[in-house]
Amino acid sequence: MSINATLIGQMITFALLVWFTMKFIWPPLFDSLEERRKKIAEGLAQAEKGQEEMRLAEKKAKGVLKEAKEQSSEIVNLAQKRANELVEESKDAAKKEGERMILVAQAQIEQEMQKAREDLRQEVARLAMTAAEQILGAEIDQAKHQEIISKVSNQL
């Protein structure tokens, strides 16, 4: 058991090992560890962010939905109102039309009656003439009596 040149050999080996580890082994392994740590941290942060975004989107969606509901009910209300109005309007129009038609019919009836009356008058006048002609005989001067007849028929 003695200290001898083996010591020097061992020191050289040790120095070589340490140099090699320092140069080729520690840096890549340590870097890959660090990189993975960073990646994991980033991933976690992103997950957190994603969740936050999802929460926001949900909130926003709820808002939009609510707004849409409100709008649709408003539209439905408006439509109902408009429909009521339309019904009212058409009712009015129908009423007016009816009244107008009645008026037209009445006017026609009036006209018809007027015409019938006129016809009747002329017929009576002609009958009266015929009767008078027959009564008075052939001696009636057409020209002289025409005036009288038309006066009478006008009074009718």
Partner: peptide, 23 residues
């Protein structure tokens, strides 16, 4: 070897092999 310049071949060999294994 003799005296100070003795080399323990087994120590040198095994530690080098184990160092190689580690590396």
């Amino acid at each position: 070897g003799e005296g100070f310049w003795t080399l323990h071949l087994d120590t040198l060999f095994f530690s080098a092999v184990l160092g190689g294994l580690f590396i």
